[in-house]
Design a protein around this nucleic acid. Structure first.
Lengths: 239, 239
DNA sequence: GCCTAACCGGAGCAAGCGCTCCTCTTTAAG
DNA sequence: CTTAAAGAGGAGCGCTTGCTCCGGTTAGGC
């Protein structure tokens, strides 16, 4: 039952030092290039890991990933120093490719409100298919801080467009929108397969609440952390 | 990193066969009553477990609970056959005592809308203080099915009152309200200590979206579960 | 005060999981 | 073709964690 290791978080904001930059350092000795089989295996690992993480979440046994990609443990750990590094790599890829697509869709949509709601719908549909991604939202608001910043800028863009058109209640912050996504991702997880799509009703309700037809101001956020709170920090906890 | 067993949920809807009914069966042999020290230890365990679960969630090491209650492992497992049983006992106590209080408050509130919003506020404030309770919401919608049913009836009561007063958009279901609580509990977890109270803004937004001033109908829920879905992998990189 | 069933405590077992070590195989430069 | 470096693979280590076992202790009926 319930493992403590979950406390270590879905990923610890790993620096991702090993990027897909196969170009060797142009130093003097001109090291030998990466072998073809190694390249092939790396790809296989990433693909298998992507599938497994999406299905089972970030808690899967590394052996399962190795098995599915037809590779040994040693090979896996040759390419990725840590399970968290592998997870971060996969999630970052998934996240940025989605964000780029969703942003393009939103930009191509004339009506600002339509752009905002469409973005939410697209985001959550994507999240509904990827368990590890949902977990990463719970832990750190996204796979990496870099990713989160990128997403925030997109959100801010959408928000500004809606504000200028007078469609959004004026005191909604970008942080509110991000928190809304995080919150709704829980609804997706909770409904799961038994009530697919019920989260869309909640999304509609929330979006209606964002509309400028609601005139009362939102409660002010507390300016700083309340030290009296009982929850320990516990770096990155999934829910 | 992330645990696999999380899949098993925070608790497996344990039957809770061992209730706080210390009365021995009134059978013929008139068994000896429970010893005083045993009773004391049981209480100490429940109290310590309550604190530890609230702070650290359901994943804590059982040894920590034993240590805090000043009791050995053997003693702990004499009173509770399983960690999950202990967790269920604690959560059920916490849940019902809260639900009773919150229901009374709501019933005593004249204005139906005030009663509903107050109930949400009270519930979420309580959840913000108990990590294990939040987890149980994510897993099964509440500590036990019994608890969940009780809560649903309270929600249904509040909903009916608001509907009769014409304050709630008419097609909001009880399930929507429960899902909203579940969803917002994630917001509480996500904001944690760093942005305490930010979830109140989201709560306000959602409640505004529930108001009858929003006239458009909600999307129909899918009638039944789609058996083909199972956290399918993202079909290749999207983009 | 005696005696026995009930109780206590913690060392230890088994299973799960991240990760390493080491031997054997394969690639590709020369 | 030769050969050395890079890669592959899987048994196994170390650690955590849920739970058990059993010798020692104590309450409480008589």
């Amino acid at each position: 039952m319930l493992r403590k290791s979950a406390d270590r978080g879905i990923l610890n904001a790993v620096p991702l030092a090993d990027q897909p930059t196969p170009t060797p350092a142009p130093a003097q000795p001109a090291k030998r290039a990466r072998r073809a089989d190694a390249e092939r295996n790396r790809d296989a690992i990433i693909e298998a890991a992507g599938a497994v993480f999406a299905e089972q979440g970030g808690t899967v046994d590394v052996r399962e990933i190795a098995r599915r990609s037809g590779v040994g443990m040693g090979t896996l750990y040759r390419h990725f120093p840590t399970k968290d590094h592998l997870l971060a790599t996969v999630l970052e890829q998934e996240f940025t490719s989605w964000l780029t697509a969703a942003h393009q869709t939103a930009t191509a949509t004339e009506d600002p409100w339509q752009a905002l709601t469409g973005f939410f719908e697209q985001t959550l549909t994507h999240l509904a298919r990827n368990r590890a991604l949902v977990e990463s939202y719970a832990a750190t608001g996204g796979p990496t801080h870099e990713c989160a910043r990128h997403r925030d800028s997109v959100f801010d863009d959408l928000r500004t467009r809606c504000l200028n058109a007078g469609l959004l209640r004026p005191d909604v912050s970008t942080a509110d929108l991000v928190l809304l996504i995080t919150s709704l991702s829980r609804a997706i997880q909770a409904t799961g397969d038994s009530h697919p799509g019920q989260w869309r009703r909640l999304l509609r309700i929330s979006l209606d609440g964002l509309s400028s037809r609601n005139t009362e101001p939102l409660p002010e956020p507390a300016p700083n952390a309340d030290p009296g709170r009982r929850w320990r920090a516990a770096p990155g906890r999934l829910g």
